[in-house]
Design a protein around this nucleic acid. Sequence first.
DNA 1: CTGAAAGCGCTTACAG
DNA 2: CTGAAAGCGCTTACAG
Lengths: 353, 353
Amino acid sequence: MARRVSSRDVAREAGVSTATVSYVLNNKESQTISPETTEKVLDAVRKLGYVPNQAAQTLVTSRQQNKGLSKLVGVIIPQTEPGKKFVFSNPFYGDLLSSVEYTARINGYHVLISGTTAEQSYVEIAKNRSLDGIIIVGMYPSSQINEYKKLQIPIVMVDCYRSDHFFHNVGVNDRHGAYLATNYLIEHGHKNIAFISGSVQDYGVNHERLMGYRDALEGKGIDYSEQLVFSGDVSYIYGITAAEQISQNKDITAVFATADIIAVGAIKGFRKSGLNIPKDMSIVGFDDIHLARLAEPSLTTVRQDISKKGEAAMELIITNILSPVMPRQDISIPLTIVERDSVSYITNTDLSL
Amino acid sequence: MARRVSSRDVAREAGVSTATVSYVLNNKESQTISPETTEKVLDAVRKLGYVPNQAAQTLVTSRQQNKGLSKLVGVIIPQTEPGKKFVFSNPFYGDLLSSVEYTARINGYHVLISGTTAEQSYVEIAKNRSLDGIIIVGMYPSSQINEYKKLQIPIVMVDCYRSDHFFHNVGVNDRHGAYLATNYLIEHGHKNIAFISGSVQDYGVNHERLMGYRDALEGKGIDYSEQLVFSGDVSYIYGITAAEQISQNKDITAVFATADIIAVGAIKGFRKSGLNIPKDMSIVGFDDIHLARLAEPSLTTVRQDISKKGEAAMELIITNILSPVMPRQDISIPLTIVERDSVSYITNTDLSL
DNA sequence: CTGAAAGCGCTTACAG
DNA sequence: CTGAAAGCGCTTACAG
């Protein structure tokens, strides 16, 4: 491999010192360089095709702060199991990563993606690469999260519900989103609304969404009943199963499914049971995945701006790199209802029964 | 930020020189270190939680070769437009990236993802980060590809058809895949088989797939007719449109769609036209996206092992880093037919007409 | 306004 | 078997 062009080559070409080259390229306000010298250096840079060596820059700036050393931000995406591949098939991660990368790039940063191996913790990777910050997506065991605290670099958690809030957070207000969905159904005249979700823990996304569902019912003076809560796993199959169970209960006229994939399964399940969507059963989902638009009927759902999420996360990192004493931030990305064809009005509830 | 533990700290703790620390950690066969010393160093490393500084390593190894300097491999994913976000929503890229990253990781490499900005070409990024190799996914303008040649580092192109083959290549045999799909339909008794695809260029994926379609027809002595070729864009919508056109031609009993998304649209289109799938019309797709399994009926399609693709690409890079004089490689990932419910037999073609 | 020099944290001939 | 020393390519006080 041909030796790379260094700042010394540029200095020689321009007839100046490497210090001057550095001053020109980093235009420090502390140093003023004459226009002529600046021009000479820039010409030499162009002529030789000089690109600074980031490794050298990282090394030399390791003593200072408020700058970012490596201009590298790590992104941690959930893995099926530690040391294995990512659970990346979910298009959500692709969209998120895309906006994370874009926001990094226009700010002069790059993105390192990496899972962890049995032999190497992410903390080691962060040290080894002199990461300027880390974005952690999804839920992880507390032990792992605690490790990161030692790192003393900006860290943003995305979509992570935890009891202790040590790092910055970016997420959606799941409770509010569930409220929106449920309330939408109520405003369409529905009263007996089933709730279908993955497993509901004491905290976490589904817990929040269940709370939002209850908020909406309560807001309209409708009694909450555990009978209407169906919880399994986040899958198409479970959507079918839940729908078949729900079909047994003739009072139920609507369903809020906490994930589109469940909702789409439910559509299938209801159809199997001979119910027409939306005439006999209204459904609202959550996520607005690609499939939501293609479903038959197309699915009314709660949409989050994934792009904004990634942008917010990376902006938080960068802001925090620049001002290390910044207080912890909690950012909530707005949610909106996307109206499609899976919900119908019930005008005369009593008569229709 | 607390000063990091350096090899000097380790050396001091172990009562040896930094050279010895380096020898122990990199266990060079050229240097033999006594077991006692090795033990002392390793103890110190553990005690202090020492992690080598990659920037320093990259910098110092910049004079040697056959090693990889930065242990960093760049991955270029298609962007909507230069300087913008990735076209990442396609789950394909997520799967690919996942296996690329995994393969890198278990080999001691990391993955840098980055698009390009107007102000900064990827060549600059590669130099700046001392990238050890690059994986380029998809098609790019020749001018851009030519830029990369200067870089003198291993480069693998994934799914890229080009007239000049300068870099390593990883892809699928699209022609063979199309042959498999078409032949599958022929073996189910179909003779009038329509071909639906995105725009067909003089070279590229769709061109190859059209060739494979023709191969299969020819292999069974069936005449090729341009009347049966429908080409628009790779979208659900176009699938609907094409299906509606095809419904006009009562001779056609089967369709090979070169993308599942088109095939799923076609299912919808045929249903609109009152045709039953697979009784009145058989369909085979290509890709095996998530949707293929969920479609009604589920879609028979050609599947590629995306994971293998990423693995092969990264392995090629790493092999080439270790042996820089390696000849150009061309790797084709196997394709298989996934049989589902969208194809039926035609036993008595003549009678059925 | 510009340059000489030190130093970031490593690795590797070379000497012993 | 181990260490002193040079050097990778930068940046930044400091001196002038």
